[in-house]
Every structure is written in C-alpha cells, then in structure tokens.
C-alpha cells in the first residue's frame, strides 16, 4: 500500500458518501437541476460484484476486505434507494445512455483480452473494463440537462480523482516494485480520460463559484 492508493481509495469513499448525503438531503435523486444516473449506479454495483468474487478466497488485509464489503454494500444500497425509495424522482427518460452497449463491449473485450481464461479472471477483467466506462451514462445525463448541482460536481470530482490517483499509484509501484498490469493501466487511463472535460469545467467554473454549465 502507498499513500497515492490510500488517498485514492479514500476519495472513492468520499464520492460514495457525497452521493448518499445528496440523496438523503434532497430525499430524491433529482434535485432542481442535477440528476443522478441510475444506470451508472447499477453499473458500479455490477463492477464491485464481478470484481470481488475473491472476497473470501483471497485475503489481502483487513483494510482490503473491509473496503470490498463496503463498496459492494454501499453500491447495492444506492441502487436500492434509487429503484425503490426515491423511485418517484427517478426519470428514466433522462437516463437514456445505452448501458447495454458498454456492458456488451466490456464483456466481449474481457473474453478476448485477459490474463487467464477462467471464470473468476474473466469476471475480474470485465469489471475493470466496465468500471472504465460506467460513468458514461452519468456524464451523458449532464450533457442533456446541461448543468448540475454543485454537490453532484463534487461527487464527480471525487470519483474522477480516485482513479486519477490510481494512475499515480501505478507509476509509483512500477518505479518501486516493477509492478506491471496493462489491463488496469489502460482501463484506468481511459476512465480518467473521460473526466478530463469535466475536470476542466470543474476547475474553471465550479471552484470559482460559478454554476456548472456546459458550454
């Protein structure tokens, strides 16, 4: 474990708490103008369920196991809240990104490009590819609504920073222990790349107190 990865995981936690806080505070998934994509949250739950199949078999540390359990539980809880508790405020007409395309694409790629053709390894690889593009429905929704509540932008900032810091962690680990993992490196770079446009608007507008509005 290194500082970059620890802070990255904490940013991931922060993003989940921001989302839960927002939903709890506004008692909905759709504030005045900011909407949370159910598809993205469902994709994240799928990512954790397919990635942590080794939850009981591969004990790394108490930290690792605790975080895995928290990510699985919190992502399922968020899906539950959106699907049942705050269903009335969830308007599928705005969540129009074709999630089946990213699920199908990640599954196909995982069957072709993986480290081992075993069920667990292919599921893990699928979760890596899926996580890289899981934010697309949410970003797509932002382009449709054209703006987002500040708290939603902080959610996206934390989420984007988490994987961005993982990139730094991988550079550090390559440099100090010759750690190489092409699949997570390339997927992580794509994932962080998808946030670049958002980061630009976030830093140039939101942090200056302006509203988050897409040009």
């Amino acid at each position: 474990m290194n500082l970059f990865r620890l802070v990255a995981d904490l940013m991931h936690l922060v993003s989940i708490f921001i989302l839960l806080l927002k939903m709890q505070k506004t008692r909905s998934v759709a504030g005045r103008c900011s909407r949370i994509s159910f598809k993205t949250q469902a994709l994240y739950a799928t990512v954790f369920l397919t990635r942590y199949t080794d939850l009981f078999a591969n004990f790394q540390s108490l930290y690792n196991t605790t975080m895995k359990v928290f990510f699985i539980a919190s992502s399922l809880y968020i899906v539950f809240l959106m699907k049942f508790k705050f269903k009335a405020t969830n308007d599928p007409r705005l969540d129009t990104f074709k999630a089946q395309y990213v699920v199908g694409g990640a599954a196909a790629l995982a069957l072709i490009v993986n480290y081992a053709f075993t069920v667990q390894e292919v599921l893990w690889t699928f979760s890596i590819y899926l996580e890289a593009v899981a934010i697309l429905p949410q970003l797509f929704m932002l382009t449709k609504t054209g703006e987002a509540e500040v708290i939603t932008t902080h959610y996206l900032f934390a989420l984007g920073t988490y994987r961005g810091l993982y990139l730094v962690n991988w550079i550090y680990r390559y440099w100090t222990e010759y750690y190489v993992d092409w699949i997570v490196w390339i997927a992580g770079a794509v994932q962080t790349g998808l946030y670049c446009d958002f980061f630009y608007i976030y830093f140039t507008k939101v942090l200056k107190g302006a509203k988050f509005e897409l040009p």
Partner: peptide, 10 residues
C-alpha cells in the same frame, strides 16, 4: 501475457 501476482488492489 504475464498476469500480476495476487490481486492486492481494490
């Protein structure tokens, strides 16, 4: 291709 050792990252 070479698979990394144990999956020690989240």
């Amino acid at each position: 291709s070479s698979a990394p050792a144990a999956k020690d990252e989240l």
